[in-house]
Design a binder for these strands. Structure first.
Lengths: 334, 334
DNA sequence: TAACATAATGAAAGCGCTTTCATAAATAAT
DNA sequence: ATTATTTATGAAAGCGCTTTCATTATGTTA
C-alpha cells in the first residue's frame, strides 16, 4: 500500500503538502492540488488511519457501551449510531456491560484503553459519581436513557414520567378504574419516574394508588410473570394491568392466561418501550413508544458536534416526548 | 499519560526491555521484570494501542459486518462476538450493510479502511466472487451463515436443508398431510436449502410437493402475510403452513386470523430461526432453532486462532445441526 | 520598481511504540 | 582459568503520518 512519501515523490511536492491535501484544512494552490490528487489516484493511495491517529492524537474511534447487547432493545439504537458515525468517518467500537456495575465499568475501561476519542454510554448500573469523575478526567461522552443534571446537555432521554402518565391515562380513558401496576426495580431512575407518572394520572382521576395492586418486578419476563401472580393473590379485583416495560408485560400475559383471564376481554394489559415484538404478541401489546433510536441518533450527533466540531446546526433534543401506542391488548370498557 | 520512555527511565532499563515486558514474548530476567512492572504500576502506565499498531503493523481490530443491525436477528450474535473478541483484547468495530449489495460492499470497504486485521462477515447480497477476491487479497475473514466450498474452513453455518427437513417432519409427525409452504427469496441459498429439506421430508412420507400450496415470500412479515393470502386463494385445503423464517410465520399468523382460521386448532404454523419473539406470539411459535450465536462464537474463535494464533485447541464446528422446537402453534392431529 | 504583506510550500521534528542488530553478561564446556 | 556458547539488554532505525517554523513565491501598494 502506497504511503504519503510515494505520493509526494510522484507529485513532486513535499510530505507536508500531501498531508494538507488529505486533510483539506490548509489552503493549497489549485495547481498542486491537482498534481497531488492525480498522484494519489495513480497509486491508489489510502491514508493509514493508524498513523494519522498517532500523529494527530485523534483516533476517530467512538466507543459505544450498551448495558445489554443481546435482546431486542439495543439493536435499533446501535444501528442508527453506527450509521451516524460512519457517515462522519468515525469508527464505532462496541462493548457490552452485562447489566452489572463491574462489567459496565470494565466495558468503559476497555473502550478507554482503545483510546476512543469519545464514548456513547447506555449504562444501567454505574453511579452518577463515576460518570462525573469520568467527566472530570476530560473524557467526552454522551449518555442515553439517563439524566444527570450537571451534564444535562449530553444526556438524551425520554420523559419517563410522562410516559407513565400517558399509559395510565390511556387505560383510564378506556374506562378502567381498577388498575394493577407492575413497576421496574426501584433503584432504577426510569422505573421510579414511570411509576410517578402513573400515580399522577390516577390522581387526576381521583383514584388512590392501591399498594395491594402493585408489585415490583425486575424488568424481565419472569419478573412480570411472578408479579402478576403476586398481585392476584393480594387482590384479584382489577381489569387492567400496566407494566413498566414490555418484557414484563409479556410475562404478565402468560400469567394472566394461567389465572384464567381472557385477553383482552377480562384483562387489559399495557407495556412500555414498544419493542419490536409488541406487534407480535396476541393480543398485540398497547405500549408507550420509547424513541430509543432517536436518542441514539442525538447522542451520536452530540459527539460529532462537541468532539469533532461537525458544525451541523441541527437542534438536538435532549428529552423526548413519549407517545402511547394503543393496540388490541387494551380493551375499551363501554 | 505515561509513555514507555518514562517507564524505562524510572526502571533504569532501555525502551526495548520495557517493550519486551509489555509483549511478554521475549524472555526478560525476573529481576528486570520486577523493576519494570513496579515502574509501570507506579506511573499507571497503559500502552498506547495506536502506537503499538503503527509499529507492529497490527491493529487488533476486527471488523464485524452484519447485513442488518436492527431487528432481532443479530443482537445475540453480536453480543457473543464482542465477548469473545474482548476477552482476547481485540476491538470489535461494527458496520451494517443494509441488506443490499452496494451497502454491504461499502461496509466492507469501510472496515478495511479502518485497517482491521480481520473481518467477520454476515452478508446477504455480496457475491462469492467478491469474497473470493477479498481472499486473494490476503484479507483474513470468517463467514457466518453462508458457505463457500473453497473457503469452507472459515464458514460457519447451520444445516439449512436439515432444518427444513426437521420442520416438515415435525409437522408430518403431528399428523398433518396438507401442508402449505412459504419459502424465502429463491436467490438466497438458505431459502433454497430449507425448501429442499422440506421436500425431502414430504417425499419420505410419499407426499407430493404441491405448487398450489407454495408461495415465495421475502423473509419479512409483510411477505408472510401476502403469501398466505395468495396460497389460500389458490387452494384453501391445508391444515398447516410451514414458513422459511419466523418473521414470515408471524405474518402468516396475522393473515390466518383474517382468513378465519383459529390458531392452532384449524391451522398449525411453523417457522424457522427461533427468534426471541417466537415465545411471545400467541400461540407460541414452533420453529427450528437457528444457533446464530454459536456461529458467531465460532467465527470469532476462528479469527483468534488463524489471525492471532490464539492456540485454543477447541474444535471448531463449521456446520451446526438445527433442532426443531415444538410449541403451541403446532397442533397435534389425533 | 522598490518595499512590504500575504499566501503557498518545504524541512524536520515528533507521536509512542516494535524490532533488528550489536553488545554485554551469564553460563557451560574444556 | 580460558574459551565457546547461550541469554539478557541496549542503541537506534523506522512505522506513516501531522504540525510547527522557516523559507520561497506571489501579490499589493506607493
Amino acid at each position: 500500500m502506497a504511503t504519503i512519501y510515494e505520493v509526494a515523490e510522484l507529485a513532486k511536492v513535499s510530505l507536508a503538502t500531501v498531508s494538507r491535501v488529505i486533510n483539506g484544512n490548509v489552503k493549497v494552490s489549485p495547481k498542486t492540488l491537482d498534481k497531488v490528487k492525480a498522484a494519489m489516484d495513480e497509486l491508489g493511495y489510502r491514508p493509514n488511519s493508524i498513523a494519522q491517529s498517532l500523529a494527530s492524537n485523534r483516533t476517530n474511534r467512538v466507543g459505544v457501551l450498551v448495558s445489554e447487547l443481546s435482546g431486542p432493545f439495543f439493536s435499533n439504537m446501535l444501528s442508527i449510531v453506527e450509521q451516524e458515525l460512519r457517515a462522519a468517518g468515525k469508527h464505532a467500537i462496541i462493548a457490552a456491560g452485562h447489566s452489572d456495575e463491574k462489567s459496565e465499568k470494565a466495558g468503559i475501561e476497555f473502550l478507554l484503553s482503545c483510546r476512543c476519542d469519545a464514548l456513547i454510554l447506555h449504562v444501567d448500573c454505574v453511579s452518577d459519581e463515576y460518570l462525573l469523575e469520568l467527566h472530570r478526567q476530560d473524557i467526552p461522552f454522551s449518555i442515553i436513557n439517563h439524566r444527570i443534571e450537571a451534564l444535562s446537555d449530553r444526556c438524551f432521554t425520554v420523559d419517563n414520567e410522562m410516559g407513565g402518565y400517558l399509559a395510565a391515562k390511556a387505560v383510564l380513558a378506556a374506562g378502567h378504574r381498577k388498575i394493577a401496576y407492575i413497576s421496574g426495580p426501584s433503584f432504577k431512575e426510569d422505573a421510579q419516574l414511570r411509576l410517578a407518572g402513573h400515580k399522577r394520572a390516577l390522581a387526576e382521576y381521583n383514584i388512590e394508588f392501591n399498594e395491594a395492586l402493585h408489585c415490583t418486578g425486575n424488568y424481565q419476563e419472569e419478573g412480570g410473570k411472578e408479579a402478576l401472580h403476586t398481585i392476584y393473590q393480594q387482590n384479584s379485583d382489577f381489569t387492567a394491568v400496566v407494566c413498566a416495560n414490555d418484557e414484563m408485560a409479556v410475562g404478565a400475559m402468560f400469567s394472566a392466561r394461567e389465572l384464567g383471564f381472557s385477553l383482552p376481554e377480562t384483562l387489559s394489559i399495557a407495556g412500555f418501550d414498544d419493542l419490536i415484538f409488541a406487534r407480535y404478541t396476541y393480543p398485540t401489546l398497547a405500549t408507550v413508544h420509547n424513541p430509543i433510536s432517536d436518542m441514539g441518533s442525538m447522542a451520536a450527533k452530540w459527539i460529532l458536534r462537541e468532539v469533532y466540531n461537525n458544525s451541523s446546526s441541527e437542534e438536538l433534543i435532549n428529552v423526548f416526548r413519549p407517545e402511547f401506542v394503543t393496540r388490541r391488548s387494551l380493551n375499551l370498557l363501554s
